[in-house]
Structures are given as C-alpha cells and as structure tokens.
Write a protein that binds this DNA or RNA. Structure first.
Lengths: 237, 237
DNA sequence: ACATTTTTGATAGTATTACTATTATACATA
DNA sequence: TATGTATAATAGTAATACTATCAAAAATGT
C-alpha cells in the first residue's frame, strides 16, 4: 500500500488536530492500545495520561471526552477502509469482480498486511472497531452528531459500495440497506465467532476472515442476482 | 395473544426476582421508560429511585448495576419474541410460509398490537432494545457473562430460526450466520431509518416495519434459494 | 537573538456516578 | 406474639468526568 498515508476526516470530533503534534499522535496510538486492552467502558483519560506520561488536562485539550475520541478513531477507520477499497478496486472493470474485491477488503481489514504506515496500527484499531463501533451512534446525541458530520465516513463508504451493487443490478431495490447490513455483519460475525460462537458458522479457530468473506459474498450476490419476482416472496404458495 | 403472559429467564442477571414484588415490578417498568427517554448512558439508579419514590440502595438489592438490568430487559425481550414467534408460527406447516411469518414477527415487534399484558410495555421496550441491545454483549465481560447464560435467550431464538432455514434448504451453509445477521439487521434498519437515513432505503415516515420486512424476506429467501454454485461466487468470470 | 504566542505539565478542585454499610421501621408470616 | 424479610433513610467512599489556574517549555515570527 502507500508509504505515506494521510487520512483526513471531514468533521471535527477533536478540539485540536491530533495528527499535528507528538502528544496528539501519542493520544491516538495509545488510546487504541488501551481501548483494545480495557474496553471502552474501563478506558479513561486518566489512565491514558498515565500511560503516555502526560496529564488528564492535556488530553482534554485534544478531545472533549472519550466518546468523541472513539468517534475520531472509528471515523478514521472507515476513511482508511474507503481508501483501501478504492485502491484495491481501482483497475477492476467488471462490476461483479469489483464488488467481490470490495467485500474481501471489508471482511479482511483485520489482516492488513502493511500496517503501521502512520502512527496508527490498523490491526489493533480493527479489533477496537469490531468491539466498540456500535457505541459511536447508539447514543441520545446521534442526531446532533449526525448533523455535525460525525458519521460521514461511514455513510460515504456505504454509498460507494451501494453504487457497486447498482452497477451489477440497477433494479435491486435495497442497495444501501444491503450494504449497511453487510458492513455491520462483517464485524458482527467476527465478534460472534470469537465470543458467541453458536450464533454463526464462522469459526474463530481457523480463518474467520475467509469464512466471513464467503458468507458475505454469498449473501450479497444471491440478493443482487435474485431473479425471483419480488411479489413471490410475500405470497402464499 | 395470551392474557397472562409470564416470561421466565434462564439466568440470574438479577439479585432478587423483580417479578415477585411491587418494587421489583416498578423498577422494571420505570427503567424501560427512563432508558427510552434518557438513553442507557444518562440513565442512573439514583434517577430511577427518585422516579419511583424509592432509594438507590433498594434498587441495588435487585440488580448489581445498570448493565445487569439492561441484560435482564434485553433477555426478557428475546424470550418474549421467541414466545411470540412460536405462537405465531404454531400451525403453519409450510416451512417457507413459517419463516416468512417469523420474519414478520421479528421486524414488527415494535407494532405489538396487544401490549402491556404484564407490567412491561413491549413497545417501549422494543425501542430500548433497538437503541441499546448491542451494549449488552459489547463489553470486556462478554465471555464471563456468556458462561453465566446471559445470552441464552438470544442464542435460542437464533437456533430456532436457523432450524426454519434448514427446513427450507438443508444444504444452506450459513443458517446461524444468516439469522444472527437478520436479527441484528431488523433493529439496525429501523434505527438507521430514523437516525441515519442515508444508510437504508427503509423510510421512517411511512411504514418502516413493512419495508424492513420486505427487505429481510428478500435477503433471506434469496440467500436460502440461491441455486448458483457456491464456487461461482469466488471465481473470475 | 529576542519577543511573542502556543503548548504542555503540574496542581487543585468540583459535581456526579457507582456503589456499600448501617439502622430503623413497616409489613407479612408462623 | 415473635420472627423474619423488605424497604426507606441516611451516610459515606472511591472513582469518574470534567474545569480552572499558572508556570515552564517549546515553537514561531521578525
């Protein structure tokens, strides 16, 4: 991949651009490690400050609170994934092949082969996103934060992939619903495989990313290619 | 539906059975209202105590903390939904018709026509589950809580519906993954329709439950009926 | 090189949250 | 009537989630 990847976000979940200073970058990279180790609930700015040899007050100059820091991390992830999808599908003309590749990128983001080009370790961030990203939009402030553009990166990737669906079958009626479901499912199935294995056939032991990829490809392409009359699905037979 | 519905859970997320006392029932019914109004993060036992004219200490005798109370509520919801699915599909012989009915129940749980048979208002609880249920298993304690049986109600319904899938097509390779994806998607699409509408074709304005039902039926039946060779999906063409 | 601005660290402090402990009283039951 | 159980009232603690102040250090402009 690129050797000098700079991901910029289209909103200000931060107070001060963390990429611009040493402390800011330490906040980002160590918060990823800590959220991975402790989980979002046990993670605090006090613990983070101790870990990077700084103070709570200094961290508060970069992020209003830990929720906004999570918003930043998750947005960064989706922006990075969007970039990766664009890069990996760049020269693929065939629309089916293109979507197939995009699904692979989505399901295998945790296997990133060239991580750590920036101060962000994408593989650890991937685990944080799998475990915590639902908390980003499941709050009472969701509408206000949506207005502030906090979910643009997610929505943009959804739109991009939905367009790929329409390139295959312009008549498919639920492209965005299908893709948002798949984006969530990619993470959920990985999480279930590890923690609630009876909810999925994906096995954590071997190659969960491969199996998730298979499942998602089957799910998406069968939906997109479904020739059965729409009405047939709702009728008695 | 039933006039005297008693849902029992197969684990003890509570310290004292809340159904057995007046205070316990008030804790349950008012916590549902409060979580709906304030969201899980802003909800506290102190506020709940004030609302029901009791004290924090008294509530702590029923639940160790607010997370366990949420576990209780979400488990109750899945047990209730399982009961409803079983009841509504009881006399349907045709397996396709049976799954169709089950999907309708899943997607229309928020429209429950005969709510409030117990002290629990299923329609408000539905909104709480849509907004907050992901937090139940996205914690560092997920494995320990899984061992304690906290997710049995969810897993049991997943197994039940997965069996319906296999009754239609015994060769379908991902019945549990498909159903767990659909169970989550049913809630997500409703949530997206309201809060992040660009992520879905489901419109909050009209009949989001109907559109979600259509989407899920299409998604599930096309996957189950997919005759395309599995291998075809991974090949160049 | 010097003055200025910005950033950070150190320290302190507040309100709220998430509990635990104790005791007295009301209430139900045997 | 005695006895146990449930609740309310009160108090208190440790941790969390911040905010404010000030001085030192670092970066920046000229």
């Amino acid at each position: 991949m690129s050797t000098n990847l700079y991901i910029s976000l289209s909103h200000k979940s931060y107070l001060r651009e963390p990429d611009s200073t040493e402390l800011g970058r330490k906040i980002i990279s160590e918060s990823i490690n800590m959220m991975d180790a402790l989980g979002f609930e046990q993670f605090t700015f006090k613990k983070l400050a101790a870990a990077i040899g700084s103070t709570e007050a200094s961290i508060y100059r970069y992020f209003e609170n830990k929720h906004k820091l999570l918003v930043y991390l998750v947005s960064w992830y989706w922006a990075w994934l969007h970039f990766t999808v664009t890069f990996q599908t760049h020269n693929i003309q065939n629309p089916r092949q293109r979507l197939r590749r995009a699904i692979e990128v989505l399901a295998k983001a945790g296997l990133d082969d060239d991580p750590n080009v920036s101060h962000i370790d994408e593989r650890i961030l991937y685990r944080v996103v799998v475990a915590e990203s639902a908390k980003v939009y499941h709050t009472k402030e969701v509408d206000a934060e949506n207005k502030d553009g906090y979910f643009l990166e997610f929505k943009r990737l959804c739109r991009h992939l939905a367009q790929m669906v329409l390139d295959i079958n312009p008549a498919y009626p639920y492209p965005h619903a299908l893709i948002s479901t798949a984006m969530e499912a990619a993470h959920q199935q990985m999480y279930f495989a590890r923690h609630l294995p009876s909810l999925t056939e994906v096995k954590d032991a071997k190659h969960p990313e491969e199996e998730t990829t298979f499942f998602l490809k089957h799910l998406l392409f069968s939906a997109i290619d479904c020739t059965q009359k729409q009405s047939k699905l709702y009728e008695h037979e």
